[in-house]
């Protein structure tokens, strides 16, 4: 166990880096994904088309390719991110936003059309109908799929290790190379660190899901 104690600062920093990657990208992806969803249900056809194009491109491109492009590809067009961390956040956010948007859209589609009809029949306008009737119900059904997107994102941060961000996976490689005799301990420590991020999330998602459940 002294091995873990000796390398604690290294592991702690790696854990914090992974957590920061996941949380920052998660927030950015949620904002961008919501925006994309609003575009996709809007009555303006060019907005719908642009958002659909975006979602299909990023949903169907491997995340590693997105990383590659943002790390090296954009240099071709004279662009560069200020740091490798920000480059990784950008790649994770752009990629994950497509999945957030899909989850939100499925939530909107899951609200029976009669709910919006009843709202319109009462005299609510488009914005009121979306804001008070459709979105509150859509959000509730979208908690489990959004939870899955979040957990996938937390694990996808490991790709940043291949692009010179010292996260948990990068630290796993480094410690494993230097301490072949402690391989199992290193693996265990890294896996536990990931679980610290994902397990409470899964639990929290379950709680939110129960709290917001609506009877049908």
């Amino acid at each position: 166990m002294s091995f873990l104690a000796d390398n604690f600062p290294l592991l702690r920093d790696a854990f914090l880096t992974t957590l920061a990657l996941a949380v920052t990208s998660g927030i950015c992806a949620l904002v961008l994904g919501t925006l994309l969803t609003a575009m996709r249900v809007s009555p303006v056809a060019p907005l719908r088309a642009a958002a659909t194009f975006y979602v299909e491109v990023f949903r169907n491109t491997p995340l590693t390719v997105v990383f590659f492009f943002l790390a090296f590809g954009i240099v071709e067009i004279d662009l560069q991110f200020p740091s490798r961390f920000i480059s990784a956040v950008a790649a994770l956010s752009l990629y994950t936003a497509a999945f957030v948007s899909e989850a939100l859209r499925s939530g909107i589609n899951s609200v029976p059309s009669g709910q919006a009809e009843a709202a319109r029949a009462l005299g609510l306008d488009f914005r009121q109908t979306l804001g008070t009737i459709v979105l509150p119900q859509a959000f509730r059904t979208v908690v489990p799929p959004l939870g899955n997107v979040w957990i996938a994102l937390a694990k996808n941060t490991s790709i940043a290790a291949g692009f010179a961000v010292t996260d948990l996976t990068a630290t796993l490689q480094r410690l494993a190379n230097q301490n072949a005799d402690q391989l199992l301990v290193v693996f265990m420590a890294i896996v536990v660190a990931y679980l610290i991020i994902t397990l409470p999330s899964a639990w929290l998602i379950g709680v939110i899901e129960r709290r917001t459940a609506i009877l049908r």
Partner: peptide
């Protein structure tokens, strides 16, 4: 409406 359409939430 036929199917009531009360706001479920």
């Amino acid at each position: 409406f036929q199917s009531f359409n009360l706001f479920a939430h």
